[in-house]
Simulated scan of single mutants.
Amino acid sequence: MNLRFTIWSFTALLLLFTSCSDRVKDNLGDATNFLKVTVDDKVEIYNNVSARWIAGGNSLEIRGTRDGSSWMTISILAKDNSVSVGRYTLDDSSPYDMLATYSRLENNQQFNFTATRGTIALSDDFTLEIEDMNEHTVEGSFSGTLIAVQGLNVIDSVVLKDGSFTTSINAE
């Protein structure tokens, strides 16, 4: 009887540890709260990620920081509709506005990059795919080109690739 229990316990633990998702295999820590993105060919993993409902619960903001050296925020803003599972882009004809920001510190100087709907610059681009969401968690992927401007001139840009996140959603 004791041998059967030991074998059964070992099998259950083996199944538990071998069925972990790729996120855990990627050393992302807590698989239920992460943001990972390749910024100009450099992988960044954000260790402090959260989301929150804003503007009466219709709009959603996802934000993360990487040890205080870089920050990322993605906001989907809605007036009448609620954000839901789906694909959002800067130039679609949906009733949603989007704002994506990326900031980093280099040599004690902060650099800020954005992508938003309706800018004069045509070089910013951003796509967000919300793949799974309920009132407590959100999961998705993203990519795009964020720009830094001075007046009407684009002075710099960053390319975001293979972005993915999973995080809990807090109340407003």
Rank of each mutant, 00 (worst) to 15 (best):
E139N: 10
G140D: 09
D97Y: 11
Y88E: 11
V149D: 04
I130E: 07
N112E: 03
S141H: 01
R87L: 13
Q110G: 08
Q150P: 04
L105D: 13
R117T: 15
E131L: 02
P95K: 11
E106H: 12
M72L: 11
T116I: 11
G118H: 08
T89V: 00
D80T: 01
T127F: 02
I130M: 04
E135G: 06
N81R: 15
N112V: 04
Y88M: 14
G140T: 03
S93R: 13
G144A: 00
D92N: 04
A78F: 04
L77G: 03
S123P: 05
E129M: 12
E135K: 10
S82A: 07
D125T: 13
N107L: 12
F113R: 02
S93D: 15
N81I: 14
F126N: 04
R87E: 15
G144I: 02
I147T: 02
E131H: 11
A115W: 09
D125G: 04
T145R: 03
Q109C: 10
L105E: 14
D80W: 14
R87T: 15
T89E: 07
D97H: 08
S59C: 05
I120H: 05
I76Q: 10
R66A: 14
I120W: 00
E129L: 13
L146P: 00
A78Q: 10
F113S: 01
T65G: 13
H136K: 08
T116S: 09
L77S: 06
H136M: 14
I147M: 01
S143M: 13
S141K: 02
I76N: 06
S93M: 09
A121H: 10
N58K: 08
F113Y: 06
K79H: 15
E106I: 09
N108F: 12
S94P: 01
K79L: 06
G140I: 04
N108I: 12
E129G: 12
I76G: 02
N107G: 08
E129C: 13
T114F: 00
Q109K: 14
F126D: 09
K79D: 14
A121G: 01
S75K: 09
M98Q: 12
D132Q: 12
L128E: 13
D92K: 07
D125Y: 06
E139C: 15
L60E: 05
G144Y: 00
F113G: 08
T89G: 09
S59D: 07
Q150V: 06
W71V: 09
F126E: 11
A115V: 05
S82D: 13
T65W: 12
A100G: 00
H136F: 14
V83D: 09
R87S: 10
G64A: 08
R117L: 14
L128D: 11
N112A: 02
Y102H: 03
D91L: 13
T127E: 11
A121K: 00
A78I: 02
E139F: 10
D124V: 06
S69Q: 15
Y96N: 14
